[in-house]
Write a protein that binds this DNA or RNA. Structure first.
Lengths: 163, 163
DNA sequence: CGAGGATCATCTGTAACGCAGAACATCTCG
DNA sequence: CGAGATGTTCTGCGTTACAGATGATCCTCG
């Protein structure tokens, strides 16, 4: 161990490393799925629960709204997903998975599950559950609306410029 | 709760959300530092322990070697870091922090610490420690050399094509 | 009802970024 | 000494994010 903490102690480093590893694994496993891991998340969001609007999905997944357009283009071209006009708001499109999309999602989910286990392999089963729980707990509030850089800057340096 | 698990249960989603939140926070707090969060990590790596070669730093931080060049260019132009020829290998450059760099690093570290606390604010003190530990444990092996997509694909689908 | 402003999706252009490949200097091993 | 490997830098390409404009539609208020 060092007197001065090594990079390995840095939260940013650990988070980045784990995220990159997860991305490598899911990229490899989800190759062939339009949009890769992000396509998977869109597909998964479209399949579960009520059909959502494109913008709603984008916000939930942290994807830019302009990116969502061609992401969905690809998924729709592959017949995995369907854009349907929202009967309640004709500006919006509701996204729903097709039968083919649901089948593809099931395969992808299983492959992804194994990729996740691979990434988490240094942990015991109990530790994996704890990690998932803690990450989820942080993510739920981090993804909440109104979470923007300004609030952090305000907290830390006390300025309110440009906010 | 849903019968079909919501996106919130997905490890990829949680990891991505937390990572994005951390990036937002550190970006906001480290604005002004050349290279942003990545510049910070390079600076931190240069300051701690033995001077390392550019490539060694790049691999440890998961940064492409060609990116490292102009990242260090910026840090050096700002006088925070110094390229010195490695006496043992004249191809390589050893990176070390200047006095100004060390001072800047100290400020940045403190600001970053507060940003981290902000991101982890939904957790108790004990939970934060657990999360850091678990992430670090995963990251250490994920960042190990020889960790590439092929191994995962081999595990999952059993193909060895192109590996 | 109707005008003004807001909102959703899309399109366009721009800037940043990672990555593959080549070039050059240097090291290492036979 | 020669051949191949390695560290750094440079160039070019494809991808991606993001800001801004546009068109269609909704909502609100007079």
């Amino acid at each position: 161990m060092h007197a001065t903490p090594a990079v390995e102690a840095d939260l940013g480093w650990a988070l980045g490393s784990v995220f990159r590893a997860y991305l490598r694994a899911s990229d490899a496993v989800l190759a062939g799925l339009p949009g890769g891991p992000r396509g998977y998340q869109v597909l998964a969001t479209a399949e579960r629960g009520e059909p959502l609007t494109q913008l709603a999905i984008a916000q939930r997944l942290g994807i830019d709204r302009t990116v969502m357009t061609y992401l969905i283009d690809d998924l729709e071209r592959s017949g995995l997903v369907e854009r349907r006009p929202d009967p309640a708001d004709r500006r919006a499109r509701l996204l729903s998975a097709t039968a083919a999309g649901r089948a593809r999602l099931a395969e992808a989910t299983e492959a992804l599950r194994q990729a996740e286990e691979h990434v988490l392999s240094p942990l015991t089963g109990a530790e994996r559950e704890v990690l998932r729980d803690l990450l989820r707990k942080v993510a739920v509030v981090a993804a909440a609306p109104g979470e923007n850089p300004c609030t952090i800057v305000q907290e830390v340096v006390g300025k309110d410029s440009s906010c």
